[in-house]
Design a protein around this nucleic acid. Structure first.
Length: 230
DNA sequence: GCGACAG
DNA sequence: ATCTTGTCGC
């Protein structure tokens, strides 16, 4: 049985129920003595027929040292994405390929940085949280677009503004580069928001997005391209 | 009731 | 997500 069959629901209704069932498992605080030395970014590239329902996808995961930014390891996985894209259920399109790619990592990840939301999600269970709960690895959600509205944070790097949903703060809009659109950070699993922001800022050296997601993005695209050429 | 809506 | 190179500007 493939990873996909274990993770992808048969319907939208089932997917929602699965999220509601798993959401309570999210831990919003780090484990004792949590001090990751590495961060692992994850991303998925879609073949040209995306964003329909089924598409060939290439997932990539890249681990970097938090102190130096050096690339320590990477892995990829090619697969199919069959679940339709529905805001709020986005994770089901990328989860199987991402989990397969994580399996190929020689060293176990210490902190996952997903390109999407964690608990900044209608059911508090976005891609980052889903990845964290399934793997048990602390995770952070870093999205390029919020699911709801937000107030613009101050222009300096490090400035934040709360992301609120149903009266609850679920994350922050974080300015990683002065004068550039912020990114949207939320707890995935086993981290707190302050720690998450700290690591995200560390990973954003010269660009708006974390180096981990930039590297994973490049690797996933290259993998898909080389697949087409062969 | 009418939009908004991660990638 | 994807279609897409060079180019204007700090």
């Amino acid at each position: 049985m493939s990873v996909a069959e274990l993770v992808v629901p048969a319907s939208v209704e089932e997917a929602v129920r699965l999220q509601e069932r798993l959401a309570p498992l999210v831990e919003r605080a780090p484990p004792p003595d949590f001090a990751p030395r590495t961060a692992t970014g994850l991303d998925v590239a879609y073949s040209a027929d995306a964003p329909g329902d089924t598409a060939v996808v290439a997932a990539a995961v890249v681990t970097v040292a938090l102190a130096s930014g050096a690339v320590l390891a990477s892995a990829t996985a090619v697969g199919e994405s069959t679940f339709p894209y529905v805001p709020g259920l986005f994770a089901f399109r990328e989860l199987p390929a991402l989990l397969a790619a994580l399996d190929g990592l020689a060293e176990p990840p210490e902190l996952l940085v997903a390109d999407g939301h964690g608990i900044a999600h209608p059911r508090r269970f976005g891609l980052a949280s889903h990845l964290g709960v399934l793997t048990g690895v602390p995770s952070i959600g870093v999205a390029k677009t919020p699911l709801g509205g937000y107030d613009q944070p101050a222009d300096e790097r490090g400035a934040t503004t709360p992301l609120v949903d149903e009266g609850e703060q679920v994350g922050v809009a974080l300015r990683t580069r002065a004068g550039v659109k912020p990114v949207f950070v939320s707890i995935g699993h086993r981290v707190d928001l302050a720690t998450a922001c700290r690591h995200v800022l560390t990973l954003c050296r010269d660009y708006r997005l974390p180096e981990t997601t930039r590297l994973a993005d490049q690797l996933s695209r290259r993998t898909l391209r080389e697949l087409a050429e062969s």
